[in-house]
């Protein structure tokens, strides 16, 4: 008899050291974790069967996230309320599954992503925070990788894909909150914000003795600006 499977969505966070895991490494980690946790999942058919794992838009290496999604398929009779704990027992401490549920939406419905960016540098000030906000009101040209040109690079204005950006200075830190496109065609990597600060405001953040920036994806939204589930 062919077993019947149901789709289950896992929402998880990856913070701390886990931010340096690439998407490929995350994929491999999750595969072994599911086995360790004895969570049975459907495998692809064919010569080299692999577990069916579908991730929502991955964050880039270095970015933390509170809202990563992974769809798996488990046998119909699985009690999915037990899955988060089973997985968390077998995950490295910096990855935590927050919930498991039967999804009603599709990853394609994700349109926006919200990021908190924290910047630490001795040159920060309230004035710089104001300049940062002002910067993104006019075109911001960033060099992007492309297959379209011979050099492999192309200048792009990133502001059409930034819907909101606020910057506040407080206690030696600059806190940036931004809402950007998370759609396939216009996807905006939040690292571009850091690049723009370097290019337009001369904010070099490469010295580990004085500077740090962290990027955290805090939420993703659908077209209707409601939290994606």
């Amino acid at each position: 008899m062919v077993p019947v499977y149901k789709k289950v969505r896992l929402r998880f966070k990856k913070t701390g050291n886990a931010k340096f895991i690439s998407h490929l490494d995350l994929d491999r980690t999750m595969k072994t974790v599911l086995t360790r946790a004895k969570v049975k999942v459907e495998h692809t058919h064919g010569y080299n069967p692999r577990p069916y794992l579908v991730f929502s838009l991955p964050t880039s290496v270095g970015t933390e996230s509170l809202c990563e999604f992974l769809d798996i398929k488990v046998p119909e009779d699985t009690d999915i309320s037990l899955i988060p704990e089973a997985l968390n027992r077998n995950l490295p401490p910096d990855i935590r599954v927050l919930e498991a549920y039967i999804p009603e939406s599709d990853f394609k419905e994700i349109k926006y992503a919200e990021y908190d960016i924290t910047v630490i540098s001795p040159v920060l000030s309230e004035e710089l925070a104001e300049k940062t906000e002002a910067l993104f009101k006019a075109p911001v040209i960033i060099e992007k990788r492309t297959k379209k040109t011979e050099s492999g690079f192309m200048d792009c204005d990133i502001t059409p894909n930034i819907y909101r950006l606020t910057a506040k200075y407080s206690d030696g830190k600059m806190l940036i909150n931004t809402l950007v496109s998370a759609e396939n065609a216009t996807y905006m990597n939040p690292e571009n914000v850091i690049k723009a600060l370097d290019k337009y405001l001369d904010l070099d953040l490469s010295d580990p003795a004085t500077c740090l920036y962290t990027v955290m994806r805090v939420a993703v939204y659908t077209n209707e600006k409601v939290n994606f589930m």
């Binding site: 895991i21 010295d207 740090l212």
Partner: peptide, 15 residues
């Protein structure tokens, strides 16, 4: 203060 993460962002395979 030394920010290890800033350094790690500048090397191959920080993992």
């Amino acid at each position: 203060m030394f920010y290890k993460d800033t350094l790690l962002k500048q090397v191959l395979k920080p993992g």
